[in-house]
Design a binder for these strands. Structure first.
Length: 638
RNA sequence: GCCCACAUAGCUCAGUCGGUAGAGCGCAUCCUUGGUAAGGAUGAGGUCACCAGUUCAAAUCUGGUUGUGGGCUCCA
């Protein structure tokens, strides 16, 4: 037998016979290590603990505590779940795929007759536990594609056969545990006994291979962890997210609602929610003016011919609402760009006056599929902080950089981190190859120049141009699509936008579509979850509430309330005949930043006693001082 | 749009086997004037989402519609 050299992470080198497994190597180091190991990394690749090592190289054992371990455990759990399902339901159910995802894994099953229900979960979990306890060996096997195809055909697993037929390889790997066999690349844990903590979580429909033309499968979501403590922590995180759910908080804080009578996905903004979005809108106008944008306003409906000219009619019609006025067809705008182009076209433009930056808090309507509506995060009518920058090609770089700086500033003000993505030409698109290349190149250049990392999203651009998407990361580290920057050579062409250059000739400008927070609706939803409803002072719809202790201070409380309102503090007055504790509790649950307690002491000294919503009290102070405090704190946040 | 589930008072939720509805909170009135997270009493409030069907009888069973939730596909 030939000898090979195995280098371990601590730098030591073992000389072993070719064909030994990582498990054997672990044993030579210690029995405890061997017992703890679940897989290995050899020359950078993940392999099974039982895979024979054929050549020299660097080997690292993956133990239950390694960061990579969890993914392997979850993947093996997916197999365990499929095995359990097959043992319980037999040929009534076919297996398809079962990958690992963030926070767990799922397995998609196909069945004509079996409909999974949550009541099946304990049964499946019990079978999984039984199979895990049996500590079955998990064995890797390789066979030719045709043999594997025949094997699964014999087992009646049509979806596996289809997967195998589509693979572009000679041999495929299979994993067996007990009577169960699954097509899989691996690696897996060596024994089912290593799978201890798992839990089925939910059910959903999913199309085979994600294509809505294909059969609907039944997806069983589940999760697995190394120990019970981690599972508990995970369930706790889910609970936290539930508490922050903007739909729940939106109701509790009386910010907005939806009505069956009005229609799905159409938001009704209550006074406090409307206040919140107004604050954001005022902030947006100010920030845009500061950065050289001009505010414009376009109409809600535009003639259908115009949507045909823009390409929206051909590419976006299924998302649009149409109406007819005096036998003339109109489309309700799903985007704001058309009006902005018409404004540009209203007079001749000189190269000296470019770029023009038109900003509009534009309300658009899109017919989203009913199943995708989701609180404020996905609606059918929403307002974008939309701008169109019409510029010379040589100005694209600088403009994109400015926009990225704008995004950075705004994200910082609201306390978000973010990640960026570049999306390239989709299948359904308009414009020439050359334009697409130039536009994509411009965006990529700006991204490279920003020094910020970004990922590439092939084929995910808008139909008229490539785009940069910015995803904000909230307090729970979840990502939300908000800002987007899109480069467009096509619409200026279609609308024959021109400017007169230094040479006196007409030239074609470029248009950048961009939003910073995206949709105000979605952004408010994200903010609610990000802040868990406790908005910073400058965003709070109600900043302070004046509370009297007894009726005898009602007049003074009223005076304080009016003084604050005069000073533009968003304030409420609560002089109801209730005990102070009761009023404090209500204000606390409404997450109002400041409660101003007015008793005899305050009335006598003409002061207020502020209490912050975290329970801490400030020194008793004059009304004027309190106004100063609110102003200073609001300014500091913004 | 597709799969699965759900829809009972303003809110959160009970309601068994089919026999025309309950609680807590909130709301109204009264008592209570109480210093930092719920004082007490009384009362009002429901076409059980909507439309059909089965049945002597439907919140309950069946079908459809609308809406909501979890996903899929799509997306600001």
């Amino acid at each position: 037998m030939a000898l090979i050299k195995i280098e371990l992470p601590d730098g030591s080198t073992n000389e072993v016979e070719s064909g030994v497994t990582p498990y054997d190597v672990a044993l030579t180091i210690g029995e405890g290590l061997a017992r703890q190991s679940i897989a290995a990394r050899f020359e950078g690749d993940l392999i099974d603990l039982t895979s024979p090592l054929e050549g020299s190289g660097r080997l690292a054992l993956i133990t239950q505590n390694s960061p990579e371990a969890l993914e392997i455990v979850r993947h093996s759990c997916a197999h365990l779940m499929a095995q359990a399902v097959k043992e319980i339901y037999g040929n009534e159910v076919q297996v398809t795929i079962g990958p690992v995802i963030k926070d767990g894994f799922y397995y998609d099953f196909y069945s004509e007759s079996k409909k999974f229900v949550p009541e099946d979960f304990p049964v499946i979990e019990a079978k999984m536990a039984e199979l895990a306890k049996a500590d079955l060996a998990v064995r890797r096997e390789e066979m030719s594609r045709s043999d594997a195809s025949e094997l699964f055909h014999g087992l009646g697993e049509d979806y596996k056969v289809e997967l195998i037929e589509d693979l572009d390889v000679e041999t495929v790997s299979l994993y067996r545990q007990g009577d169960f066999v699954d097509l899989c690349r691996g690696p897996h844990v060596p024994r089912t006994g290593l799978l201890k903590v798992f839990k089925l979580t939910s059910l959903a429909g999913a199309y085979w291979r994600g294509d809505e033309k294909n059969a609907m499968l039944q997806r069983v979501y589940a999760t697995a962890f190394q120990n019970k403590k981690e599972l508990k922590a995970h369930l706790h995180r889910l609970e936290e997210a539930r508490k922050r759910d903007h739909r729940k908080l939106g109701k509790e804080l009386d910010l907005f609602s939806f009505s069956e009578e009005a229609g799905g996905g159409l938001v009704l903004w209550h006074p406090k929610g409307a206040m919140l979005r107004t604050i954001i809108e005022d902030f947006e106008r100010k920030e845009h003016l500061k950065r050289g944008y001009e505010i414009v306003v376009g109409p809600q409906i535009l003639k259908t011919e115009l949507w045909k000219m823009s390409g929206h009619y051909d590419n976006y019609r299924e998302n649009m609402y149409f109406t007819e006025v005096d036998e003339q067809g109109y489309g309700i705008k799903p985007m704001n760009c058309l009006a902005h182009m018409l404004i540009y076209k209203s007079k001749p433009r000189s190269y000296r006056n470019l770029p023009v930056r038109y900003f509009e808090l534009g309300t658009v309507h899109r017919h989203e599929k009913s199943g995708v509506l989701h609180g404020l995060l996905r609606v059918r009518g929403f307002t974008q902080d939309d701008a169109h920058i019409i510029c010379r090609p040589d100005q694209i770089d600088a403009e994109v950089k400015n926009i990225m700086g704008f995004v950075q500033d705004v994200a910082g003000i609201f306390g978000f981190d973010y990640v960026m993505e570049l999306s390239t030409r989709p299948e359904k698109s308009i414009g020439s190859d050359a334009d697409w290349e130039q536009a994509t190149h411009a965006l990529q250049g700006a991204l490279e120049g920003s020094g910020q990392p970004y990922t590439l999203n092939e084929g995910d651009g808008a139909f008229y141009g490539p785009k940069i998407d910015v995803k904000l990361k909230d307090a729970l580290d979840r990502e939300w699509q908000c800002a987007t920057i899109q480069c467009d050579f096509t619409l200026p062409e279609r609308f024959d936008l021109t400017y007169v250059g230094a040479d006196g000739e007409k030239h074609r400008p470029v248009m950048l579509h961009r939003v910073i927070v995206g949709s105000i609706e979605r952004f408010v939803g994200v903010l609610i979850e990000h802040y868990a409803g406790s908005f910073p002072l400058w965003l709070s719809p109600v900043q302070a509430v004046v509370l009297n202790v007894t009726d005898s201070q009602a007049d003074y409380a009223q005076q304080v309330f009016e003084q604050l309102r005069e000073a533009d503090v968003r304030v409420e007055l609560d002089i109801r005949n209730e005990k102070l504790g009761f009023k404090i509790r209500e204000a606390q649950m409404a997450k109002i930043p400041y409660m101003l307690v007015i008793g005899d002491r305050e009335m006598e000294s003409q002061t207020v006693a502020p209490r912050f919503r975290d329970g801490k009290s400030l020194e008793t102070m004059s009304v004027a001082d309190f106004i100063g405090t609110v102003r200073a704190e609001s300014a500091a946040c913004k």
